[in-house]
């Protein structure tokens, strides 16, 4: 199995599609038009690594799960991911298995595709200091939960800076 070296999940305008595609092995556009997770766990217990909803996100866990480096470009929403990005992440839990283990002294699921290297999150949009702190903490937690060795959060003030940080 060849891992996708670098996957970028992003919610910015389609005008950035080509630039983002040129920066990674797989680009995932979160356009906010997908159905949200129904919480059924079917992607673990019924049809592993596949959602029962037949849209573009049906097998998204297989792409995210194989990313050695996952870069997320998201607008700030209360110190967390935009709803469009979060929608994709919620639909991707098939990248782990239903079995439990300990990581970082807390309970987490074992990883279907093994460990990853970097989780990098690029945040744009209006943001307060408190929200920045929440975001840093959230990404740290995500990195442990999803089995990333390293994590990084970059706050950009203007989307003109995006290309430089990808």
């Amino acid at each position: 199995m060849v891992k996708n070296e670098k996957v970028i999940l992003y919610d910015v305008d389609r005008q950035y599609d080509d630039m983002i595609a040129s920066k990674c092995d797989h680009a995932l556009a979160a356009d906010g038009k997908y159905a949200h997770c129904q919480g059924c766990f079917g992607c673990w217990t019924k049809h592993p690594a596949e959602c029962f909803m037949k849209d573009k996100l049906q097998q998204v866990c297989r792409i995210i799960g194989q990313a050695n480096e996952l870069v997320i470009v998201t607008e700030n929403l209360y110190g967390g991911y935009s709803a469009a990005v979060k929608n994709v992440l919620d639909r991707a839990i098939g990248s782990s298995t239903p079995f439990s283990t300990y990581r970082g002294k807390q309970m987490h699921h074992t990883l279907r595709y093994g460990k990853h290297d970097l989780l990098k999150v690029v945040v744009y949009g209006d943001i307060t200091e408190a929200e920045k702190n929440t975001f840093r903490y959230l990404v740290e937690r995500n990195a442990i939960n999803e089995g990333h060795a390293r994590s990084e959060v970059v706050f950009i003030e203007d989307l003109a800076e995006l290309e430089g940080v990808l």
């Binding site: 997770c37 209360y78 991911y81 709803a83 939960n145």
Partner: peptide, 15 residues
Amino acid sequence: LYVDGVPSHVLRFME
């Protein structure tokens, strides 16, 4: 709790 945060459909409602 979904992926260490708020489920996406709840974020939409909060907005």
